[in-house]
Design a protein around this nucleic acid. Structure first.
Lengths: 361, 361
DNA sequence: CTGTTAGCGCCTTCAA
DNA sequence: TTGAAGGCGCTAACAG
């Protein structure tokens, strides 16, 4: 077996084989400019014979466009992002673009260096769903001349983006539980300092306020998406000896798949049962909510629509024909899927808890 | 706001600003060849002032290497692939490579065109975990001069790859159920015509054979990963009037997250309960198995290890220093995680079924 | 140690 | 309709 495989055919080879000039070969292959049908056929045949495939890098060099877009998220394996990325990739693929992905693992430094790396690779556009810092300043410095679409991030009015209506989602979920009589509701959400977290806590608080109530400030947990963290925090809330000032929550709102998983296990581990002892509103990123018994009432939105919208927003900016579209925003609405994990407070209070883990008693 | 943003600084600008030639600037920036510390500092300063960032495309043009690798899977949002890709991306990122991803959606045509597109973009390497057809021939035609790592696919001995030991996994799972007294075991697995499916069914059959038994040939379902499909197939097996020749299965082996989800719902929908009525061995791709009650006994392997191994195998081939490593294979072992979803057959036979959906009776 | 030069493969003017 | 030539930004040879 020869060590060095023979170099790939270039347009030069095709031109020679077809007996035409390089320029003509290029025009024939790309169907651009005036070329006779005869030479088109000739060039096509030569290209086929040589197994010619155009070199994307050389083309990018010339056209100043790579046909590649990048997407940055904190964790590719989070079902939320996995679903969004899948939908976006499908849309990009249909439009002839390829997708470069990277996880930032919630590291700000990594995030910045990845943006620089993507810029260096000359991606045509960028979808940003990770940034630890939301500032128009950072955005403009880092992504300058590259079209950007924000994924649930606020980079100011100049940046296009698709945003989920977390505010009304959290509002609805909280109102629902308040109307069931719950007053000690715990809110678990990732992204403390980012748009989703901000919107959710605002909706949560406003639901209380609208009823003339005040939420327990000790019951809001905003941390990055982590199962273990949610587990231990929820367990702490449930297993601490209830005091008059800070009794255990009677309901949980868990707005992240990982977080929901952790809290679910904590509830089970503490010997409580849903919805008899505690109520729960989860999140519909995965189909976990349909598998546990009882099925979990979730706040759900269309992840595919998020990905598709992000791709389309970016494609619109990439369209060289249009001059320069005004930064557009898409709002994705949320829906409260009522299932069996929430019950009126009254019913819960009557039942005593059976603790599975005896050693903590 | 000016319509055209000013063009990015090139190495030419840096050279002029630093008062050196572009060759020297290049050497100074890349720390290659002999350059005085003085000029290095000079060039670095100029680069900083101009906000210079090297153009990856131009560099790729010259060096014949893009620093980009591609990965092809059937569905990016499948937790199995999401986990593998995340691990691989992390490894690639650490090595300075970027990752191009695409879903083939189980379409052979798409698969081939995507390989061509990736080749056109001149990826340095390819991880193939999708291919509908496993043949050394197809591989060599399509991926010719690009290093390839197979992901649970058989492209012949010349192709490096990481492979999961599905054979022994299925063997263990089946033996376990057979030892519990089950004889009518249904096997659900995606990828009928691919390595995982082949290995699994071989292990399944051998477990029977080793005990002098024959598996029910009507109980093997090998289709692509789809929840709805698994649901209806499982329901059909469970709800058809049991006959002497083909009674309903008493145990299910579900080797795909989606499939497991569908079968779980079918079992519940048919009014059966686990493990009293039917036993189940699932798959550990997600943490679903820990959330449903009872917890599901699963066949599990380290998805992160698969992704990392694939990346490392490819990186080894990409290392220009080494001559050309012999095609290497990594075998990932599986583990049967015993939980609460399997019971001896005896206990199951005694309980009559309660059917939820009365209309089918 | 540094400057000059020649392309990498392609597209796109400009002439013919 | 076609051919010739220039250059995208960079690196790697070769001179000095």
């Amino acid at each position: 077996m020869s060590q060095a495989s023979k170099p790939r055919a270039t347009i030069r080879d095709v031109a020679r084989q077809a007996g035409v000039s390089i320029g003509t070969a290029s025009r024939a292959l790309n169907r651009t400019g005036r070329v006779s049908d005869e030479t088109i056929a000739l060039v096509a045949k030569a290209a086929r014979q040589l197994g010619y495939a155009p070199d994307g890098v050389a083309r990018s060099m010339r056209t100043r466009s790579t046909g590649v877009v990048g997407i940055l998220v904190s964790d590719l394996s989070n079902p939320l992002y996995a679903a969004i990325i899948t939908a976006a990739e499908t849309a990009f693929q249909a439009a002839g673009y390829s997708l470069l992905v990277a996880s930032t693992h919630n590291r700000q430094a990594k995030e910045r260096s990845l943006i620089d790396i993507f810029r260096g690779r000359r991606v045509d556009g960028l979808i940003l769903g990770a940034c630890e810092t939301e500032s128009a300043d950072m955005l403009s410095r880092l992504a300058e001349d590259i079209p950007v679409v924000a994924l649930d991030r606020d980079f100011g009015p100049d940046c296009a983006g698709v945003h989920v209506d977390h505010y009304n989602g959290a509002l609805k979920a909280t109102q629902y539980l308040l109307n069931l009589g719950h007053r000690r509701i715990a809110l678990f959400t990732p992204g403390a300092h980012l748009r989703p977290g901000r919107e959710r806590i605002a909706g949560f608080r406003d639901a209380y306020t609208q009823m003339g109530l005040t939420p327990g400030s000790d019951l809001v947990r905003m941390e990055r998406s982590a199962m273990e963290f949610a587990f231990s925090e929820a367990l702490a809330l449930l297993s601490s000896a209830p005091t008059a000032e800070a009794p255990s929550p009677t309901a949980f709102i868990c707005l992240g798949t990982r977080i929901m998983t952790g809290v679910l296990q904590a509830i089970r581990h503490s010997g409580r049962s849903i919805p008899d002892d505690v109520s729960m509103v989860g999140v519909g990123d995965s189909d976990i909510s349909l598998l546990v018994s009882p099925n979990i009432t979730t706040l759900t939105w269309n992840l595919g629509a998020v990905g598709t919208a992000a791709a389309e927003l970016l494609l619109k900016q990439l369209d060289a024909a249009a001059p320069r579209p005004a930064p557009e925003r898409v709002l994705i609405t949320t829906e409260l899927m009522l299932r069996d994990s929430c019950a009126p407070l009254r019913a819960q209070a009557t039942k005593p808890h059976r603790h599975k883990n005896q050693e903590t008693q």
